[in-house]
Write a protein that binds this DNA or RNA. Structure first.
Length: 255
DNA sequence: ATGGTCGCGGAGCGA
């Protein structure tokens, strides 16, 4: 089975990229973040025509996540118990075969010290609690999505520029580590010790054209899911072309 | 280069 994750930065704006990509790559599951629409605005017909079942957790204008699957999806859950109301729609989970898939769009945090930064750390602590329960209920679990957190300097093209800044600060990494303490492993890093692999490049600074990116979109696997994992690949080519997302899709191959 | 880009929604916010 192949599970993909992609922050599309608006599913409606990104259909010209997402539809051909789905038709060509055909992952069994695609986890979407930042669909930026309400459930009834989601372009269902075009995606269903490719054979995908769709589960959405949307909101107006901002955030929003969805699960697309060629295989039957069961036990779909939206949001998190204890989640602050102001953070919006950021989590959707479902079971595909024997794999529990949790799709998360982590709060960005704006900048270190900002009120939204405190909200990010708090939101991650709620995610850590959710994962503890989810892993206990589903031993073969994958947590994926846009984490808006790097693990270390290998995930940053210019580590000195980003030192202690948003997406790279120690408190954020500690909050992510608390999520990982449910027993999760960063599957990409498990297979690839070398740095220089990124999943997001800033529009504002034309990061992609300048080769400046961060690795913030992850696949985190429970022990049983890690043992079944075979590869994680970043589809950098999908970041090219006309009006791309600022993120590339990432794919996990798991048995 | 204290600039520079996107998307939503129709001004300013969020990333």
């Amino acid at each position: 089975m192949r599970i993909a994750t992609w922050n599309v930065n608006s599913i409606r704006a990104r259909l010209p990229h997402v539809l051909p990509w789905l038709a060509r790559v055909r992952p069994d599951v695609l986890c979407l973040q930042e669909i930026k629409c309400q459930d009834e605005q989601f372009p269902r017909e075009e995606i269903e025509a490719l054979g995908y079942a769709i589960e959405t957790h949307g909101q107006k204008s901002y955030n929003g996540v969805a699960l697309l699957s060629l295989l039957p999806l069961s036990d779909v859950a939206r949001g998190m118990a204890g989640e602050p109301s102001e953070t919006g729609a950021r989590v959707i989970a479902g079971t595909v075969g024997d794999v529990r898939v949790v799709n998360a769009y982590v709060v960005n945090g704006q900048e270190v010290g900002h009120a939204k930064y405190a909200l990010k750390l708090g939101w991650l602590s709620v995610l850590a609690q959710l994962l503890r329960a989810e892993v206990a209920a589903h031993p073969k679990l994958v947590l994926t999505g846009d984490f808006n957190v790097t693990f270390d300097d290998r995930d940053i093209s210019e580590p000195e520029k980003w030192r202690d800044r948003i997406l790279c600060s120690t408190p954020e990494r500690e909050a992510l580590a608390a999520v990982m303490s449910a027993g999760l492993t960063d599957v990409f890093r498990h297979f690839e010790p070398a740095g220089g692999h990124y999943t997001w490049w800033d529009f504002y600074t034309r990061g992609f054209q300048r080769g400046q990116g961060l690795r913030i979109d992850h696949f985190l696997a429970s022990p049983a899911a890690l043992a079944a994992s075979r590869a994680v690949t970043i589809d950098v080519d999908a970041r090219r072309g006309e009006k791309p997302s600022d993120h590339a899709p990432v794919l996990l191959t798991i048995e």
